[in-house]
Design a protein around this nucleic acid. Structure first.
Length: 580
DNA sequence: TTTATCATCAACGAACCGGA
DNA sequence: TCCGGTTCGTTGATGATAAA
């Protein structure tokens, strides 16, 4: 007596401690559904209503379940359950009480004993039902009311008999798989998932049932859709739940990764093979084409360079290359100092750098006077310093070229001269990095700076877009991110012009910056140097040359640019000559 | 009757793919 | 390389059904 009430007490107590239904189930050894049912007997609204009715009847003097049942139309078995659950003792008919209950109790206990023996001997639940001629509900009922002295609960009985069924099937059938097991047995997925984690003993060795009972499609790492089709489920999600609850999830993930890797390796191999075939093919074609060149050097060289690259798209067309090498051959033959500029013009290649690149691909030296070029791109030491700040800013070479006001190639050339050529690639890649960061097509800080300056100068938006050739969406993005981008530009400008740190507060080139730029150009520096040494007393070009260390031509050039009257010895002589 | 379980759906984000 | 679309796996919500 009181077993039901005790269990309900325990359930409610554990629940008030915040335990989940699963935990309560583990703790008191009852099935999840049983626990819900027990709880409802005492707490559900309907049960409470019935309890109220029963109590009223008891107060009216109806003490037995039968009497109450007559009045309330509640079945007397249900009245007994509610009374039990709430520890209400009902009167019973005297003569029926002892005889039937005792007898009942004894036979029921014997029945449970028999059932457990059958379970121990490896019978399945269905077999037990057949042998005892009982229904599962009846057995469940027996455990609920007469199971005090049993070794196990109904839940445990079901687990054991289900496990019996699994082991039996494994012994009888070869290659039985979880999916077909699920279809053919009444065991739930969850129960099956638990059972396969259990161990069985074979030749003294304990092995998980999982090792014998699994699904091939899980091991093969099939996709959820494939698994769904295989089991005949309606959704990917259900298939995933299947894999999960049957305890195969980890295995599945692992298999999928393995499969992915194999595929990747295969692709790599395939790619390599294709590449090799391509190379071989190119070699054959090259050989054949070379023969068709009839020993013409320019054609041969063009072909060799052209085929060296593994791509056709974006390649400089073969005709242009032939023209280039023909021009080179001609210039060399006649000893003409032909610059990249000239060569580019002749063969109509897009840029000088492409010309230079293709000369170096053919292993050829430049024809023009390199020294002369170098002279042109010479910069002042201050500018050099500023260029090197690029390594500390987020600017690309294109951006910094704008902010320092020097051509882009000068910047990159300077890095090479400073033996920092490695950084060139980093700086070039900056373009992509910043574009990704701001998510604006063809983004550059240069463009941003130009836009913000134009806006501050009150130029109309439409005009800005047109002049700077910016599409509408990009332009809007530039405006939207103005605060953020401006901050970055201002920081960059401060890095380049540290002496103006306190004055730079606009994201573009201000008057002060431009003044500094002007004063640092080679022209300005040279003119200043010449003026300075003249002030110091240099009275001839050769003296100036001695003092500042440049060629006569250079000094004359800059003196002319700066409108300086050179205290030239020869000139004086000429002047003296002229009157004569 | 109540609730666990089965089943499906929509939404989401990451990974992937393929054309421009 | 970039961009937009697609696929795939995951998650939470919710309805339907069967078991306790």
């Amino acid at each position: 007596m009181g077993r039901l009430a005790d269990n309900i007490d325990k359930i409610l107590e554990l629940e008030s401690q915040g335990k989940t239904i699963d935990e309560i189930s583990e703790s008191i050894g009852l099935g999840i559904k049983t626990i819900s049912a027990y709880k409802a007997i005492r707490t559900s609204k309907k049960a409470l209503k019935k309890l109220e009715l029963i109590r009223t009847e008891i107060l009216r003097g109806n003490k037995t379940a039968e009497e109450i049942s007559k009045q309330t139309k509640i079945s007397h078995s249900y009245i007994n359950i509610i009374a039990n659950a709430n520890r209400i003792i009902l009167k019973r008919k005297k003569h029926a009480k002892n005889a039937i209950n005792k007898k009942n109790k004894k036979t029921k206990t014997d029945l449970l004993k028999k059932i457990e023996q059958l379970a121990d001997s490896g019978k399945t639940f269905d077999e037990i039902l057949a042998e005892t001629n009982k229904s599962s509900l009846e057995i469940n009922y027996c455990y609920t009311w007469y199971g005090q002295k049993s070794q196990i609960t109904y839940k445990q009985l079901r687990y054991q008999t289900d496990k019996n069924e699994v082991i039996r099937t494994l012994n009888n059938e070869k290659n039985i798989r979880i999916s077909s097991f699920v279809h053919n047995s009444g065991i739930s997925l969850k129960q099956l998932g638990k059972i396969v984690e259990d161990e069985i003993e074979i030749d003294g060795e304990k092995i998980k049932i999982k090792e014998f009972l699994y699904d091939d499609f899980v091991l093969e790492g099939k996709t959820l859709i494939e698994i769904q089709k295989h089991i005949g489920y309606g959704s990917r999600e259900r298939a995933r739940q299947y894999v999960n609850t049957t305890g195969q999830y980890d295995k599945w993930v692992e298999s999928k990764e393995k499969k992915k890797k194999i595929k990747k390796d295969l692709n790599n191999k395939k790619e390599q093979n294709e590449l090799n075939t391509k190379k071989a093919l190119i070699e054959i074609l090259t050989e054949k084409a070379m023969k068709d060149c009839n020993n013409k050097w320019a054609k041969e060289t063009a072909l060799r360079v052209y085929l060296k690259k593994n791509k056709i798209i974006n390649q400089v067309p073969l005709e242009k290359l032939i023209k280039l090498y023909e021009a080179y051959e001609f210039a060399k033959k006649h000893n003409i100092s032909s610059s990249l500029k000239l060569l580019r013009k002749y063969c109509d290649i897009n840029s000088e750098s492409q010309v230079s690149h293709h000369l170096s691909l053919a292993g050829l030296k430049l024809l023009s006077n390199y020294k002369q070029n170098k002279e042109i791109t010479r910069i002042s030491s201050k500018q050099k310093e500023r260029i090197l700040t690029i390594l500390e800013t987020v600017f690309s070479s294109k951006d910094i070229s704008y902010f320092i006001n020097l051509p882009q190639y000068v910047i990159e050339q300077q890095l090479v001269l400073e033996k920092k050529s490695k950084n060139i690639n980093i700086i070039r890649k900056k373009n992509r990095k910043i574009r990704n960061k701001h998510r604006i097509q063809y983004f550059s800080y240069k463009k941003a700076s130009e836009i913000y300056k134009a806006i501050d100068n009150k130029i109309k938006h439409e005009d800005i877009k047109e002049i700077l050739e910016i599409d509408n969406t990009s332009y809007k993005k530039y405006l939207k991110q103005r605060a953020n981008i401006s901050q970055i530009i201002i920081q960059g400008l401060k890095n380049i012009y540290p002496e103006l740190t306190n004055k730079i507060n606009k994201p573009y080139l201000t008057y002060e910056i431009k003044e500094i730029q002007k004063s640092e150009t080679r022209k300005y520096v040279m003119i200043k140097k010449i003026n300075d040494v003249i002030d110091q007393g240099a009275d001839s070009v050769s003296k100036i040359k001695q003092m500042i260390g440049h060629t006569n031509e250079t000094i004359k050039k800059y003196a002319e640019l700066g409108n300086i009257d050179l205290p030239q010895y020869t000139r004086k002589k000429q002047k003296q000559k002229n009157p004569n």
